[in-house]
Simulated assay, not measured.
Amino acid sequence: MKGLFKSKPRTPADVVRQTRDLLIYVDLQGSSRDAKREEKMIELSKNIRELKSILYGNSESEPVAEACAQLTQEFFRDNTLRLLIICLPKLNLETRKDATQVVANLQRQLVHSRLIASDYLEANKDLLDLLVSGYENMDIALHYGAMLRECIRHQSIARYVLESENMRKFFDYIELPNFDIASDASATFKELLTRHKSTVAEFLSKNYDWFFAEFNSRLLASSNYITKRQAIKLLGDMLLDRTNSAVMIRYVSSKDNLMMLMDLLRVGTRRMCGGRSRTYDGSVSSPGRFRCDPRRDTYSRKS
C-alpha cells in the first residue's frame, strides 16, 4: 500500500516556488533564532542547493535544458531574485555561495531565445544599486560583487551602472582597506569599463572630465602599489581600444596627463613599467599630441 502514496517528484518550478515561500518567511521573521525558523533555514539551504544542481548538473548527470528553462521562467515570474538578494545576509556562508552561483547561471539562461534575466533587471534596476552598495558590507561584499559582475554581462544593465551615481562610488570601494573587497571592486570596475565597447566609449566621452580627474588623482596617484599598477593596466586597456580612439587622443593631448605618465615611467619599478610603457607608446603614436622626450623631460606640441 505504501507504494500507492509515494510523493510526486518536485518539478523545477515547484522548487522555485517553495524557495520563494521560504525566502518570504525568512524576510518577515527578521533575525529571530527560534526552532521553527532554524528548520526553515535548513530547508531553504537544501532548496537553493537543489536549484544549483538543476542548473549546473551533478556528478551523476548533466543539466537538462528543459528543466533549466522551467526553473528560469518561474524564477523571474515573481520576485524570487529580489528576495534572494535581500535575504542573502541572513543565509549561512555555504548557502550564500550556492545562491551566488544560481544567480550567475540564471544570467546566461535562454528562454525562447531571450535572456529573460536582462528583462527582469531592466524592470528592477534598483537591485543593481543594492548590489553595488554591498561593497559597504564586509559579510556580503564578495557575493554581491560576483552577482553584479554577472548582471553587467547584459549591456543595458552595464549602461545603467555606468550612467548612475554608483560609478563614482567605485573610487571609494577600490581604496577600501580590506584587500579582498578592494580587489573585487577593482575587478567589477574593470569589467564595467572594458566589456561593452560601444557603451564604454559613449560613457567616457560624456563623462571625460570628472572620470579622468578621479582616475588620475585617486588611482594613478594612489600610494597603494597594487591599486596603482591595476589602474595603469586598465588605463592602457581603455585608451588602446579602437572604440576609444577619440578619448585617447583627448587624454594624451593633455600636457598634465603626459607629465604624469612620464613621472610614472621614471619612478616605477620594473614590473610596473610594462603597463606604463604600453600606455605611453599609445600616447606617442597618436595624432595631435604633445611630443615627449623622456631623456630631457620636455614636452612640445607636434608640428
Rank of each mutant, 00 (worst) to 15 (best):
H143G: 02
I140D: 07
L84G: 02
N79S: 13
T194Y: 12
E136C: 12
I157W: 03
D139S: 15
L83K: 04
L88I: 08
R114E: 11
L176G: 07
T100K: 06
I152A: 00
E165F: 08
Q107C: 14
N137I: 11
E94P: 01
E150C: 12
A201S: 15
S118Y: 00
P177K: 14
N178K: 10
T100M: 04
E94Q: 13
I116T: 01
L83Y: 06
N137L: 07
M147W: 07
R168T: 15
E150A: 12
R149H: 08
L148A: 11
N79P: 02
A201C: 09
E136H: 07
D126H: 10
Q73N: 13
L91R: 03
V111L: 05
L81N: 03
I116A: 08
A123S: 10
L84Q: 05
H154S: 11
S186K: 09
E163L: 00
M147V: 12
M147C: 15
R82P: 03
A117T: 00
A104C: 12
S183D: 14
A69W: 01
T199G: 01
I85P: 02
Q70K: 09
N92R: 03
R149L: 05
F170G: 10
D78C: 08
A123V: 05
E191Q: 14
L81E: 11
T199F: 01
S164D: 01
L192H: 12
K125S: 00
L81S: 07
L71C: 05
F179P: 06
Q109T: 03
H154N: 09
N137W: 02
L121M: 13
L142N: 09
S156Q: 04
E150D: 13
Y120G: 05
V132D: 00
E122T: 00
N92E: 11
D172F: 12
Q73T: 11
R153I: 05
E202R: 15
N166G: 06
K97H: 08
A69C: 09
S183A: 15
N92T: 00
Y173F: 15
A201P: 04
Y160N: 00
K197S: 15
Q155D: 06
Q73I: 04
D180A: 13
K169S: 15
G134E: 05
A117Q: 03
C87H: 01
G145H: 05
Y144R: 05
A146G: 03
H196P: 07
N166E: 11
Y144N: 13
S118K: 11
R114L: 09
H196W: 10
R195S: 14
C87R: 01
N92H: 08
R114V: 00
M167Y: 08
V102E: 01
T72Y: 07
I140V: 15
P177F: 13
F189L: 11
N137G: 06
L88R: 04
D126K: 05
T72S: 15
S186L: 05
E94M: 09
G134I: 09
I174W: 10
S164M: 02
L127W: 03
R82N: 14
